[in-house]
Design a protein around this nucleic acid. Sequence first.
DNA 1: CACAAAGTGGGGAAAAGTGGGGAGAGTGAG
DNA 2: CTCACTCTCCCCACTTTTCCCCACTTTGTG
Lengths: 146, 146
Amino acid sequence: MFLGTYRHSVDTKGRVAIPARFREQLPSGTVISKGAEGCLQVYPPQEWAQEQGLRLGSTTPAEERRLARMMFGAARECEFDAQGRIVLSADQRQYAGITGVAWIVGVNNLIEIWNDEGWRRIGEATPEEYTRIQDQVAERRRAPRT
Amino acid sequence: MFLGTYRHSVDTKGRVAIPARFREQLPSGTVISKGAEGCLQVYPPQEWAQEQGLRLGSTTPAEERRLARMMFGAARECEFDAQGRIVLSADQRQYAGITGVAWIVGVNNLIEIWNDEGWRRIGEATPEEYTRIQDQVAERRRAPRT
DNA sequence: CACAAAGTGGGGAAAAGTGGGGAGAGTGAG
DNA sequence: CTCACTCTCCCCACTTTTCCCCACTTTGTG
């Protein structure tokens, strides 16, 4: 389970340290890919495995081909150096708008990486908004397929 | 597992370097052929073997005959030079519209090679489209044979 | 306060990618 | 048959990127 928010720096080589608390839960086979709202997402192997049912072959339908290309094309296996850092590719940094600092956030089953601006927007929700959003989600759960 | 997108140049001899990460997963017997949407596809031996289910015989439907001819007729075994490059034949380059640069994309079980324009079109999906496609595929999986 | 663990920064060797020369086989024209 | 030409490999040289290693700073803990 990944919890908490960490502010780490990204150096000129694109390296960013993954918090030790997270790292010790990430075996090899961990994958980083693009996520919704312009963040990057880190999938532990057991989470990523669910995405892998998607395979290409001569009989794969067009929609699945498209999705597979986007998903896997944007992903990379995480490789930690001796200091516990991973390298964000130029493409990933550009997608997430990350330059000097990154916010690394544990979101239960996976980890997200945000730029300053993006994470600020998430965090600036007032208690009232928070309550409203919580209610919305509760509502949808009661009546799915809306 | 093949992941990530790489932009490599294709020289005047039609040579293109396969990313080292991919190359080390490609034993001899790897095959390159034409793929859907105008890309080229690189099949590791075990993936290619699955395509061999497609055979010609007196009862093969016309569509399958056509597909088989295209796939196998266009295929070639990959041969790497000392620098880790393969040569794309003039025919393959023309089919894929590849001139100066090529995008080499890992798509889980196989590798695709795209021209600038083609790959840009795949990647330019908005987050909303991405979500929609993801939902469609999930839907189809839940209720196969539609 | 001292020690250990975590995070940050940079130099340099090694690996990956790029471009081109040239030998040898195959092809076609004179 | 010979010559010129093309195409395919194989080899070498250069540039760029990656990654491995070391050192320092900061944070946390007993």
